[in-house]
Design a protein around this nucleic acid. Structure first.
Length: 109
RNA sequence: UGAGCGGACUGCGCGGUCGCGGCGCGAGAGAUCGCGAUGAGGAAAGUCCGGGCAUCGCAGGGCAGGACGCCUGAUAACGUCAGGUGGAGGCGACUCCAAGGAAAGUGCAACAGAAAUAGACCGCCCGCCGAAUCCCUAUUCCGAUAGGGCGCCCACGGGGAGACCUGCGGCGGCGAGCAAGGAUGGAAAGGCGAGGUAAGAGCUCACCGACGGGACGGUAACGCCCCGUGCCAUGUAAACCCCGUCCGAUGCAAGUUUGGGACUUCUUCAUAUAGGGUUGCCCGCCCGAAGAAGUCCGUGAAUAACGCUUGAGCCUGUCGGCGACGGCAGGCGUAGAUAAAUGACCGCGCUCGACAGAACCCGGCUUACAGGUCCGCUCAUAUC
RNA sequence: GCGGGAAUAGCUCAGUGGUAGAGCGUCACCUUGCCAAGGUGAAUGUCGCGGGUUCGAGUCUCGUUUCCCGCU
């Protein structure tokens, strides 16, 4: 089971307005229940130039896709924290921590 | 060997597992799945120029505005490039230069300096008048000049409260001549030397510079030579400006197509010297505009498809050209996303990997960039 | 992606190519028993940064950095 991308501005606003927020050390997650699993990352200009922003987005997508199989259907926004350096292992660990705390993991394999 | 100059290229590699965006093939009613090949740069950046392309305007005209500026060529075009000219820098290889016009006109040139785009303040020299006008020696064209001494009564300068001391034989006024000298300044009416003169002056002469004319070389910018003119007009045009060349506006969020458009009614604004559109303005040209409700249809709306990648394309060879570049022949098929694709993990290697991510497409410019490779050349030193 | 604008004292802003200014703030003094208000005086600048033009640049010009605004 793969995830879909969250594209529409309406959906973005809806999630940001009505969604539930959860925080870990390196990032924040905003989510609300929906029919299918949808995900988006938020990386604005404040994170640096385009190479740096692309790097952050790739790391977040890669980290998220590890758990995509097992998450209950909902709309998810990943918002990283501004930092000096970013790493896959820290993102992966923090996403897992949040998913477990918020009971978003459906069937543990 | 050291220091340096110019040009070209490269800018992590190999293997495995799991993933991402187009594309092709296959399966499936469809969602989707499988396989295969492919997938960021030299600057993709800044958006500083030039084009293509698209829409609007096209009887169009004028004004304004903008850009550029040695010459010749290259090019679709350019503010780019190539080759040359002139100037500046460097021992040199070589590098840099927005490099037309200041006798078309206007403006500006602070401070300093006597004076700033033109004059005569000081000064030099001659004549006259006034004060004063010592002595010795030499020369003498009998005006004086040079050297030495004496002296501060008179004049000028300096010092001192003053008496006075001291430099000097020295001054002041008027008139005429001159523009050589005068601590300034970025710039002071060609420079330097000689002659000349009462003192001076391109007043005269040589050389250099400037200007004008001519011959020769060069497509030209320009170079070089000869002759002439004593020479007169500072700088600034990246101040206004003049001359020459060029420019319609807006930018793919341009724009095209489909899907909601048609009809009826009402309201609001404007109603012709008005308003809107057309290029910033004027003339000219064209035209009413916006909203709401009802009926039919449809429902995804900053959306979908097209534009969207075969193009002034890239590579190789050859020919023409000093070169930029162009001609011919052969070969190649090389990202097209749209909340937006290259990542994660593991292993090995080394010098431990810089600047940095396509968004309509090209040609340039500019800026950023760890390191590495190659070619050509210069200077210094040593040896042969 | 495309187009436009700004940067001057701690803050808000002026500024004709010729010595960088105003207001608020800061500091010192006067005034007051003390504070505020008032008065007098003073300090404060890489004119964002780097080249060029000019005798001379905050101003003209080229590049660069940062920030702001508009366009669906």
């Amino acid at each position: 089971m793969r995830y879909f991308r969250l594209k529409k501005r309406k959906e973005f606003s809806a999630v940001l307005k009505q969604g539930r927020r959860a925080y870990a050390g390196s990032l924040a997650i905003v989510y609300m229940p929906s029919e299918t699993l949808k995900m988006a990352v938020c990386v604005g200009k404040k994170y640096g130039k385009s190479v740096r922003r692309n790097r952050i987005k790739r790391l977040l997508r890669a980290a998220f896709s590890q758990y995509a199989e097992s998450i209950v259907p909902c709309s998810v926004l990943l918002i990283p924290r501004v930092a000096e350096t970013y790493s896959f292992s820290v993102f992966s660990k923090d996403i897992r921590k949040i998913l477990e705390r918020e009971h978003l993991i459906a069937h543990q394999s």
